[in-house]
Design a protein around this nucleic acid. Structure first.
Lengths: 141, 141
DNA sequence: TGTTGACTTAGACAAAGTCCAAGTTAGGAT
DNA sequence: ATCCTAACTTGGACTTTGTCTAAGTCAACA
């Protein structure tokens, strides 16, 4: 993560304690936190940090390509620190758990030219849906 | 669309003017409207229809599998009347335009067992991203 | 044509996120 | 080491999107 802080310095970022704390929270937990969850964890380390700063910092990190925004449901966006390795997401329809997964092949290859409507494609996001082992076991009929 | 209204009657729906109007709006425009856009169009035909009823009706139609909820950004959900044919979405990163597309093959096939973590998969949603012809032409450097 | 439970309404409420003016501060300049 | 200043942070108001509720209305059956 000191990598990240160095990269940000190199891009002209002022390295404030708030930004450091947000970066540390994202690095510490390799899960997909909402902005409010990031804020809650940041407050543990820096009680006076504001919601606005967390939102600002997350937005900046997304803009720099250091983290990814993930919207797997219509609720709060989640932030994925694993931005430097291509991956997709597997979401449990029961409990909402999210896992990073790595499908084979290039997803863009499945879209024939006739289905591209003149668009210049830049990427594809895949959300696999299913029930995790826990929710399968405790499934309701 | 009278098909749809008949199907809904068959499921015990009371056929109110409000529900009829919401169904007509979705049928009339084969685009991906937000709830507020559906409400705005519904108001043209039935001025006193309320936001709550539009939300209720959209939720019911989703529950019945007659329309799909699409969340391609972190903003408002969009509603897709094309629920009876499997398809994915192609979204313009410039203007937000959405098109239905039909990739080849089964998207689930690309996810090897080792990457399924014991989940029982039920489906996959793919969002292809790119620039539409208009936004490519008028692209800013 | 009456009855009744399902449906609709307006508005309050909630969650997620944005914006702003005022105060603070990191880091280069002196 | 201290100063300066643009960049950053703050709290709170505000916006957008969506949910909930109590009271009123009405579609469909008898």
């Amino acid at each position: 993560m000191s990598d990240l802080l160095e990269r940000l310095r190199g891009r002209g970022w002022r390295l404030t304690s708030q930004r450091r704390v947000v970066a540390e929270v994202l690095d510490g937990e390799h899960v997909h936190l909402t902005a409010d969850e990031v804020h809650a964890r940041a407050v543990q380390r820096l009680p006076e940090i504001s919601r606005a700063t967390v939102y600002n910092t997350l937005g900046e990190l997304v803009g720099l390509g250091e983290i990814l925004e993930v919207a797997t449901d219509g609720r709060a966006k989640r932030y994925d620190p694993n931005a430097h390795q291509a991956h997709q997401h597997l979401v449990c329809s029961g409990c909402g758990a999210i896992r990073d997964v790595h499908p084979q092949g290039d997803p863009l290859a499945a879209l024939p030219a006739a289905e591209r409507f003149g668009f210049v494609l830049s990427g594809a996001e895949i959300t696999y849906r299913g029930l995790c082992p826990d929710c399968t076991t405790n499934a309701v009929p």
